[in-house]
């Protein structure tokens, strides 16, 4: 299954990636080969196989509604490119 250029551009937009023409070609080909592989798996007859929602044989893992530690303010902003007082500061998008 070969991805069209429009599909590649759509996926890039969803991932907020700005791709050059050369990258669109290169990644488009890589994505297509991944889909081709998925197509091969799709040829298997799975009508009598239950869907796998999770790979681990676990269910109902939950926690009590009890408070735990929160991060200290200095740690909160440790990796932030920019801050303004107690807020993260980001480029405006609206």
């Amino acid at each position: 299954m070969k991805l069209s250029m429009e599909e590649v551009e759509h996926v890039a937009l969803l991932a907020r990636l700005a791709l050059s023409e050369e990258e669109k070609e290169r990644f488009g080909a890589q994505l297509s080969s991944i889909l081709e592989y998925a197509d091969r798996i799709n040829q298997l007859d799975t009508t009598r196989v239950d869907p796998t929602y999770h790979v681990l044989p676990l269910q109902n893992v939950s926690r009590l509604d009890e408070r735990g530690a929160t991060l200290a303010p200095d740690d909160v902003f440790q990796n932030a490119p920019d801050r303004d007082g107690s807020y993260f500061r980001v480029p405006r998008i609206l």
Binding site: D82, D84, S86, Y87, F88, R89, V90, P91, R92, I93, L94
Partner: peptide, 12 residues
């Protein structure tokens, strides 16, 4: 959002 004309937003 900052006032009109500013180019940033604050996140909590």
């Amino acid at each position: 959002h900052g006032e009109a004309g500013t180019d940033y937003s604050l996140v909590d």
